[in-house]
């Protein structure tokens, strides 16, 4: 039967095989090279500007004296607020979708909506946040804000939030909420159904099952997801730029209503200037930023390795 066709020489097929391997290896090498060159070029530019005073000084018009105290503290504040909001809400949403919601149209719609949200450009979230947090949709005038507490103390709130660090943190929580939800959902899905059935068979209510069985099993994976979401948040600049993060600041946040800037914004500010000296300190700030990120990732990896016990024999 097979004698009809024209034989394809095995050498030709082997050659294609080799070419494929060469192409794949080439692409992988290119990817790794790009990463190395990126890190190396930043390190070469920025290493000389790194010092203790760089971390503990405010910005300055003279690059040699400039530091990143404001953006560093700002990033911490914004990130903490963002984590406090996005992680619980994200986990709650994931629990509702995975453990409570029936497979209905509504659930499919919410799910589709979440995946669509994760594709929305972050700068668009900035626009929403500016309207919602910055201006309360125009319901309260910024010239005549509602105030609560002592403006110089720690406990001070006013509506609308304006360009405050609280507005910044809430903005970022909008950006990472879909990512957090999806990560938490995946963690919950990885818990074997047999564990849930065992809990229900002992007569536990749905919430008792979630709280005592599902959540503890899913926690390590969830925390990894949370940390990776936070590392996305700490690198975001565009939405904060819209909400009103300040490019040049000489103070650190004292309460939720303080002005703020973050590391990526400071980097953007310095990188955008024509003078090479500012590029140097931008690179130094990038090194600090990458170090923070690496620490985040390291924690995520440790959690993954240490806490992740097998859930099934």
């Amino acid at each position: 039967m097979t004698t009809i066709g024209q034989e394809i020489p095995i050498a030709t097929r082997r050659r294609k095989d080799k070419l494929m391997l060469a192409a794949c290896l080439g692409a992988t090498t290119l990817a790794v090279t790009v990463l190395s060159v990126l890190l190396l070029s930043i390190f070469v530019q920025g290493a000389s500007s790194l010092s203790w005073s760089f971390l503990t000084s405010f910005a300055s018009r003279k690059p040699a004296q400039a530091g990143i105290l404001s953006p560093l503290m700002g990033s911490l504040w914004v990130c903490a607020i963002c984590a406090l909001v996005a992680i619980p809400v994200g986990i709650a949403t994931a629990i509702y979708l995975e453990e409570y919601a029936r497979r209905s149209r509504l659930r499919n719609f919410i799910q589709l909506n979440i995946s669509n949200l994760s594709g929305v450009p972050s700068i668009v979230y900035g626009i929403l946040a500016l309207a919602a947090f910055g201006r309360c949709f125009g319901a309260i005038s910024a010239d005549d804000p509602l105030s609560l507490g002592d403006p110089d103390g720690f406990f001070y709130l006013q509506l609308p939030f304006g360009r405050s660090v609280l507005a910044g943190g809430l903005t970022l929580s909008l950006v990472i909420l879909p990512i957090m939800i999806i990560a938490a959902q995946e963690a919950l899905r990885a818990v074997p159904p047999s564990l849930r059935q065992a809990a229900l068979a002992l007569g536990s209510t749905r919430w008792q099952m979630v709280w005592k069985v599902t959540l503890p099993s899913a926690m390590p994976t969830m925390m990894t997801g949370a940390i990776l979401s936070m590392s996305r948040a700490i690198g975001e600049a565009a939405p904060l730029l819209v909400v009103g993060g300040v490019l040049l600041l000489f103070s650190v946040p004292e309460n939720l209503m303080s002005d703020f800037t973050v590391l990526p914004l400071q980097i953007y500010n310095w990188a955008g200037r024509p003078q090479a000296e500012f590029h140097k300190i931008a690179a130094a700030a990038i090194i600090v930023q990458l170090a923070v990120l690496l620490a985040f990732n390291a924690v995520a990896i440790i959690i993954r390795r240490k806490l992740q016990r097998p859930l099934q024999s």
């Binding site: 039967m1 097979t2 009809i4 066709g5 024209q6 034989e7 394809i8 097929r13």
Partner: peptide
């Protein structure tokens, strides 16, 4: 499988598939 090893005309291939 046949396509991997040999180049066939359309009718040959159809016949081969049918017979197999």
């Amino acid at each position: 499988g046949p396509r991997l090893h040999r180049a066939y005309g359309r009718t040959d291939l159809e016949e081969l598939v049918e017979q197999s």
